[in-house]
Design a protein around this nucleic acid. Sequence first.
DNA 1: TGGTAGTTTATAATGATTCTAAAAAAGTGT
DNA 2: ACACTTTTTTAGAATCATTATAAACTACCA
Lengths: 132, 132
Amino acid sequence: MKYIEKLRNSGLRPTKQRLQICEVLFDRDKTFHFTINELERKIKKQTDSKISLATVYNTVHAFEKKGYLKQIPINSSETYFDTNVTDHHHFYDLKEEKLIDLENSDVGPINILKKINGKKIKSVEVLVKLED
Amino acid sequence: MKYIEKLRNSGLRPTKQRLQICEVLFDRDKTFHFTINELERKIKKQTDSKISLATVYNTVHAFEKKGYLKQIPINSSETYFDTNVTDHHHFYDLKEEKLIDLENSDVGPINILKKINGKKIKSVEVLVKLED
DNA sequence: TGGTAGTTTATAATGATTCTAAAAAAGTGT
DNA sequence: ACACTTTTTTAGAATCATTATAAACTACCA
């Protein structure tokens, strides 16, 4: 399994559940935007085994802490995560309630002119809301 | 009262509760970032009367729909609102969990090069996360 | 193989938000 | 001011995402 090393290197034991979640999350061409509940449904569909909801939460948070997933800042009742952990941005289609990646190269350079005393910029994220 | 007309013009009856909430929200120099619970505490402090939590929710949502408040897209357990409804952006101080306004003029022009078929851009919001 | 630290799990607890339905207040016409 | 309709407020219940708990299980290492 290609994910066993990845997990071990992060100090996470490669359990059956984590490996299954890795497959659902990372065996993809395109990046994947999801909520915990969408992920749980996908796991049920792709694998026969059932993974406890608590484990899905635990694993997603563990992967986020290790930098394999990113939260997407957006107002929604459920938290959205992204398998694309590079610096990039998002469209949010308000009607369809769908997220679309917006690569850094598709946004002109962003220059933050205001400085805050004693603070460093950790990230700059752009959310572009779309309507019809 | 200066808010009576504003409410009536929006089709909202100027009730005692709404007028009190207007005062807490809008009688300010600087813009105000808040969660429902922070607002409720502020109402309790500034006015002697107690406004039901449900009313605070109703009112904030009514004001948002009328365009007097904006939700701030950010991942937090509570929803943040902003009395500054002009196009602008935010710093988010991760340690202090505080929002700071970032005016449009403090951000270089943002040029979204990617176009989505049949969709118009409604808003462009930047969230700049700060660390020490 | 045994021990221990890390994981999974079902379930309970929490906390923000929304719903409900009855009481109160505001608006309208007389 | 009065009767009537509509909107609003309210306390409390319901909902829903997320987190906590603590017991059973599993991976790892000596």
